[in-house]
Design a protein around this nucleic acid. Structure first.
Lengths: 207, 207
DNA sequence: GTGATAATACCGACCGGATGGTACGGTTCC
DNA sequence: GGAACCGTACCATCCGGTCGGTATTATCAC
């Protein structure tokens, strides 16, 4: 099916496949080390198609970050960690869920936008901005539950937004250590510490 | 002083300056986006000198990681956080010291080996290995104090090595968030959470 | 329905410059 | 003199990006 109905150009196969290829290849090799030709080969399209859909390689980077934000956003929105009635349990379930996601090859469970942001923050500020929106946007989805849990436990110490951001910091750091040789164990270990921090913060064990 | 005494070839100015240039330029632009010519210009040497001292760009990356490990190792060994008599105070002083280091341009206070490891872990495994040794080697320097503090407080929960690694995970994650738009505040915020975690873990406030 | 028209999606050869790396010659030090 | 050190010119390849062209599809008058 080379050219499906053009009623929805945004769902055109070439663009979609390029974004999916970018998600996987850039996650493994980094942005600068990934060539446009490589992306085209991985997506099964030609260079003409690439530059038809994206004005430049940088534009693809931005689009890839947004694509990552929306696709992971859908994944987490539909994840089962929202079901517990107690807000603190939902937060802890989120951490368990993130821990569960670790497995397989490193590039399969690490973060595209974290990798890209660290690499291109100076050379391609627009890409870094898009990456930042994805990261902090995801962090924001955790704020409500954290705020509820804090209110319920009478805690005012660190703000809900700050704690939400911290979960992402620990996750990103876990990815770095994993890539530096720590592997999946390093990732799980960091999640364990983070969960313990949250439990201590909320006085786990007391009523 | 273009060519100092050659009794100590390792201290030769060209090699040294290339490593210093690599430390700064790669930290800001990433490994793949930094060209050999650029490095030579920044170091004030020619390409001939570069390939005389390093067999390839990858070899320079490995040497830069080792150089980072030894120079930061010296910095931390001589830092003032070792002075407190109580081991837990030394650990907390280390975290304060790390927080104090944050300031100026992002590339000035972020980590070369973390950036490189994340970028090249798949394309240049040897560089990633050298980066990992620098990170986990630094983590190991914290183990003794953490182990002492744990013994003193009767804590056995997470191992000293694991907690030491976790400090590095949080730091690396802080760098990522900072580059993603959080800036220095994101870095300091993460350090604050980490310090709070350690304090909670060791029952700060109790005897 | 049909034919004309325009727009979209895609193809692939090509270009100029940058890139990592080499060859080789000269210089300085012991 | 010989080895380490460094400078310069050069090379093959790769890279991001362009461009003319084609095929498919949407629009619409009739």
């Amino acid at each position: 099916m080379p050219r499906p109905t053009k009623q929805t150009p945004e769902r055109g196969s070439a663009r979609q496949r390029l974004l999916e290829a970018a998600r996987d290849v850039i996650r493994a090799k980094g942005f600068a080390a990934t060539s446009v030709d490589e992306l085209c080969t991985a997506a099964g399209v030609t260079k003409g198609a690439f530059f038809h859909h994206f004005a430049s390689k940088e534009a693809l980077g931005i689009a890839a970050a947004e694509f990552w934000g929306s696709s992971t956003g859908a994944l987490f929105a539909g994840a089962p960690y929202h079901t517990p009635a107690d807000p603190l349990d939902r937060v802890l379930a989120y951490l368990d869920f993130r821990r569960l996601l670790i497995g397989g090859e490193t590039w399969e469970w690490t973060c595209l936008v974290g990798t890209m942001a660290e690499e291109v923050h100076q050379t391609h500020p627009d890409i870094a901005r898009a990456c930042g929106e994805a990261i902090f946007g995801h962090a924001a989805t955790l704020e409500a539950d954290i705020a509820l849990a804090m209110a319920q436990h009478g805690i005012r110490a660190p703000s809900a937004a700050s704690l939400a951001r911290h979960t992402q910091a620990v996750l990103q750091g876990a990815f770095v250590l994993a890539k530096a040789g720590g592997g999946a164990e390093a990732g799980q270990e960091a999640l364990d510490h983070l969960k313990r921090y949250v439990e201590l913060l909320f006085g786990k064990g007391e009523s």
